[in-house]
Design a protein around this nucleic acid. Structure first.
Lengths: 163, 163
DNA sequence: GATAATATGTCAACAAACCTGACGTATATT
DNA sequence: AATATACGTCAGGTTTGTTGACATATTATC
């Protein structure tokens, strides 16, 4: 049933390597989000909600514009999802102390709880992969992904212990 | 403007590592698809079209069900996108030789050309990251991503040279 | 050879999550 | 006082996914 071997078209050895990388990202990302997606669907949420919950949890008191900068979506798109999360009590807004135009976002206890549940499957998946492959592979994984992303966001990943 | 340091909440050192991995995947994937997305938008296509074009190009004469198995979407979703690509002459169907129920898919010359253009930016991005990080890092990248994905698809990535 | 299973397609209705464009308000900056 | 920024919102549109039902051609099975 349904055969598809690794495929022809290997113009260069290099070409095959690059295509494998493209596919590794596709399959890994697809599976990486699968458990959380299922959990979200049960709660009437989507992946967009998870992203908002995740990054608000990661950066408590983040401003709306900083969040937009991470997500790279329009404020109208964010507004729909964020408004829902606020109305349902997962996130609260605080007026900025220094700049009162800002609406700083924070998870409520309810928000923290769902964040933990949602991200748990992903953490376990990563932890398992890290455990199976070892520290050297982890360093390679990190540095290649850093190389793939655009420079501006690379400095979010400082080398450790800088809180 | 807009400050968000790496963030608080480091319950464990380990926890921070796992969260960084989650974010590496998010940022890398977001940027990885950005150029192709822009090019697709200019042609009136979306990311779904790219995925179909990519995997048909990768596996010439793939059956519809095998493609569905890769993409993990419903046949109705695929049908819309695939039908469009067929009508516009990017993909052609052939009746299966052994099983005449199958519609085996193949890129036309036009399809091959757009595939090349679309994937080019991604290939360059990967190539650059691979060049910058070196072979050892690449091995780590590969093995961690393999560890992250669910086992069933791992054997798509055999070690090399098996066509 | 009738029956069941498989591979594919299609119609219809719906939802999630994006988008653009326009406009409004509060606050800060110059 | 004028301009810019941070945020919100209304309105309408697209892409990409979903479920459910049903149809057709072909293959496999009893």
């Amino acid at each position: 049933m349904t055969d598809h071997k690794p495929g022809p078209n290997p113009l260069f050895l290099r070409e095959e390597d690059l295509r494998q990388a493209i596919e590794l990202l596709f399959f890994a990302y697809r599976d990486f989000t699968s458990e959380a997606d299922a959990m979200l669907a049960r709660n009437g949420f989507g992946r967009a909600h998870h992203r908002v919950i995740y990054f608000v949890g990661r950066h408590p008191m983040i401003s709306v514009s900083a969040l937009l900068d991470i997500l790279r979506i329009t404020k109208q798109s964010l507004s729909r999802v964020l408004g829902q999360l606020i109305r349902e009590g997962f996130i609260i807004q605080h007026k900025g102390a220094t700049d009162r135009r800002q609406r700083l976002l924070e998870l409520t206890d309810k928000g923290l709880e769902i964040e933990r549940q949602l991200t748990e499957a992903q953490r376990q998946r990563i932890a398992r992969a890290y455990r199976e492959t070892g520290g050297e592979a982890v360093q390679g994984f990190r540095s290649v992904l850093l190389g793939i992303m655009d420079p501006p966001d690379r400095n979010r990943f400082s080398r450790r212990g800088d809180t």
